[in-house]
Structures are given as structure tokens and as C-alpha cells.
Amino acid sequence: MNYHIQQITTKETYTVRHPILRSGKPISSCNFEGDDLETTHHFGLFINSKLVGVATFMKNNLELLHFNNQYQLRGMAILNEFQGKKLGNYLVKYGEDFLKNERIEVIWCNAREIAVNFYQRNGFYIIGNAFIIPEIGLHYRMYKLCES
């Protein structure tokens, strides 16, 4: 499958975040705290110039992890008709490679229960207990050590 990945704006993420992560909620719910910080990076995966996948990497330390330089992966989504084609793997890898220049030590995320296997296949491990995010559901904190 022919694709390319590039940095995109916060608002561009909404076309994928909304139907996948915030279906039935107002479009304004697609704007996450920290989205517009200078240290936050949004990446879009395009197929034939159509945005089909997004991932956001935000500088944010999780106290459970005792590292100084951490990024949180959030707002990760692939449009339904493109899921199951390993496109999410490409987005995660692209973000990791991009962040290697910033010498990060750990990437972590709050993974929805249905996404845990995806993150495990991409080298992430569960840390701590499951927890509920109101109106969204059961999540697990997961992390991946980054190679320098």
C-alpha cells in the first residue's frame, strides 16, 4: 500500500479523531489539552492524499516512570476502512524515529482495552492497574523504552 506520513496541524487530526475516538460527541471534544504546545507533534498518514491515520506525541512525564525525558502518545486513530493493514505500526515507528533526535527515554500512552494488543505488538508494556476514563472506558497505561 502506497502511503506517506508528515506533520499536520491539530485541527487536521480532527477528521480522523472525531469518527474513531469521539464518535457522537461534539467536534470540540477532539481538541486535547496540550495539543497546541510547541513540543507537541501531530503526524498524519496519507493514502492517495487522503488523511487516514493520526498520532500525537506530547512531551509529558508519567510519575510511574522514573525517566526525565518522556513523551505521551495520544489521539492515535486509523479510519475504520483502513484498520488491520498495519498502518498504525508505521505511524508509531515514524513518531519514534522523529523523537530520537530529541533524545527521549520513554514513550507512554493510555491505551483503550481494545488497543492493548496493538501496542504490545509495537513493543509497549503495561504498567500499573487498569483504570476508567469517564465516557470512554477501560484503559491501561503502557510504555516503551526508546533506543538512543
Rank of each mutant, 00 (worst) to 15 (best):
W108S: 01
F57T: 04
I127S: 05
G44Q: 02
I114G: 06
N122T: 13
I20R: 00
K144E: 00
E102L: 13
N129V: 01
R103Q: 14
G24W: 10
N60H: 14
I132K: 07
N69K: 15
G34A: 05
G44K: 00
T15H: 08
F82W: 12
L87F: 15
Y140E: 02
K11D: 09
C109K: 06
N61H: 04
E38H: 08
Y125S: 13
G128C: 10
T15G: 00
L65A: 05
P26G: 13
S29I: 02
F46C: 05
E113W: 01
R112V: 11
A115Q: 10
S28K: 14
S148Y: 13
F43E: 05
Q6Y: 02
K93Q: 14
L145W: 09
L21P: 14
S49A: 11
P26I: 15
L51E: 06
F67R: 09
N101A: 15
M58C: 07
K86E: 15
G123H: 09
N69G: 09
L145P: 03
V16C: 03
I20C: 09
T40Y: 13
Y119I: 03
K11G: 00
L51W: 10
Q120C: 11
T13L: 00
V106A: 01
Y143I: 03
H4N: 08
R141F: 01
D36M: 12
R22S: 08
F98C: 01
Y71H: 11
F124W: 08
G24L: 02
G88Q: 01
H18E: 06
I136M: 09
F46W: 02
H41T: 08
Y125V: 04
H66P: 05
P26K: 09
M1W: 00
A77T: 07
H18Q: 15
K25W: 07
E63P: 10
N129R: 11
A55H: 02
R121Q: 07
E135H: 12
W108R: 03
G137Y: 11
Q6M: 02
P19F: 07
H4Q: 06
L64G: 09
G95E: 08
